[in-house]
C-alpha cells in the first residue's frame, strides 16, 4: 500500500511539473462546449458570414437538450480519446526507453503495484478533466437549450467514464507489450477503430459491446430510466478493462524477465 501511494505521488508530481493538471481539463472543457455553442449560434454565424443567396431560408431544427449533451460526448470520444492515448502511450514504454522503469524496479517494487498505481493515476487525471468538461457543458446546455436533470447528467458521466477507463487500460496494456510509444498509440487507435467497425456491423447482435455505451446513454435520456443494455455494456466494459490490466501485469513481467 505504501509503495502504491509513493508511485502514485510520483505520477501526480509529474503531472504538476508538466502542467497536465492545467491543460488537460482546459482542453476537455473546450471539447465539450464547442459543439453546444456552435450549434446554438449556427443561425448567427451563418448570418454574419453571409454568402447565402438573397431570400434563402434555412430551417435549422431545434435540437433536444440530451442530443446536444451527446454531441459533447462524441467530441470527447474523438479528440478526448486521442489525447488520452497520446498521453498514456509512454506510461510504461517511455519509462522503459528512458530507463526510469529500471530505476524504480531495482527497488523491491512489485510489478502489479507499479502498473496499477500508474493506471489509477492516469484514470484520476482523465476522469477529473472529463467531469469538469461535462459540468461546463451541462451548464451551457441548460442555459442555451433545455434543462437536463442532474441525475441524468450524473448517470451519463458515470457510465461514459467506463469507456475512458477502458481506453486507458487498453493503451497501458499495449504500452507493456510494445517498446515504441508511437507504435503503442497507433495500435491503440487501430484497435479502437476496429472495434467501432465491428460494432457498426454487428450492433444488433452485440448489444453489450463497449462501443455502444453512448447509444445506450442516449436511450437513458429518452426513457428516463437505466436500460438493461446499459448495465450489461458497462459490465462488459469493466470486465474487459480489468482483464486488460491483469494481462498487462503478465506481459510486463515476461518482458522484464526477458
Amino acid at each position: 500500500m505504501k509503495q502504491f501511494m509513493t508511485i502514485m505521488r510520483k505520477e501526480f508530481l509529474e503531472y504538476w511539473r508538466n502542467f497536465s493538471w492545467i491543460w488537460v481539463p482546459v482542453v476537455f472543457i473546450f471539447l465539450s462546449i464547442m459543439d453546444p455553442l456552435t450549434t446554438y449560434y449556427m443561425p448567427i454565424i451563418l448570418d454574419s458570414v453571409g454568402g447565402l443567396p438573397e431570400g434563402a431560408v434555412f430551417e435549422i431544427p431545434e435540437l433536444p437538450a440530451p442530443e446536444v449533451l451527446m454531441m459533447s460526448l462524441s467530441e470527447i470520444s474523438m479528440f478526448g480519446v486521442l489525447i488520452i492515448i497520446l498521453l498514456t502511450m509512454g506510461t510504461i514504454a517511455g519509462e522503459r526507453k528512458s530507463g526510469i522503469a529500471e530505476l524504480v524496479l531495482v527497488k523491491p517494487v512489485k510489478y502489479p503495484i507499479y502498473i496499477t498505481a500508474k493506471w489509477l493515476a492516469k484514470i484520476k487525471l482523465f476522469l477529473t478533466a472529463f467531469i469538469i468538461g461535462m459540468l461546463v457543458s451541462w451548464y451551457y446546455v441548460n442555459l442555451l437549450f433545455d434543462t437536463i436533470p442532474f441525475t441524468d447528467w450524473l448517470l451519463t458521466v458515470i457510465f461514459y467514464s467506463f469507456w475512458l477507463v477502458f481506453v486507458v487500460s487498453l493503451t497501458i496494456f499495449y504500452s507493456t507489450l510494445l517498446k515504441n510509444p508511437g507504435l503503442v498509440a497507433a495500435v491503440s487507435v487501430g484497435t479502437l477503430i476496429g472495434m467501432s467497425i465491428i460494432n457498426s456491423i454487428f450492433s444488433h447482435h452485440l448489444t453489450w459491446f463497449p462501443n455502444s455505451l453512448s447509444s445506450h446513454i442516449l436511450e437513458l435520456h429518452k426513457s428516463g430510466s437505466i436500460p438493461s443494455e446499459l448495465w450489461g455494456t458497462a459490465f462488459v466494459t469493466i470486465v474487459l478493462s480489468i482483464g486488460l490490466l491483469f494481462l498487462s501485469f503478465f506481459t510486463f513481467q515476461k518482458k522484464e524477465l526477458a
Binding site: F19, I22, W23, V26, L37, I44, L144
Partner: peptide, 22 residues
C-alpha cells in the same frame, strides 16, 4: 454573445500562459 464566449477566451488565455511557462 460576447458574454457567453468570455469564459472561452479566459480558458484560451490560461492555456497559452501555461504553455509559455512550460
Amino acid at each position: 454573445l460576447l458574454e457567453l464566449l468570455l469564459p472561452l477566451f479566459i480558458l484560451q488565455f490560461i492555456l497559452m500562459i501555461a504553455a509559455l511557462i512550460a
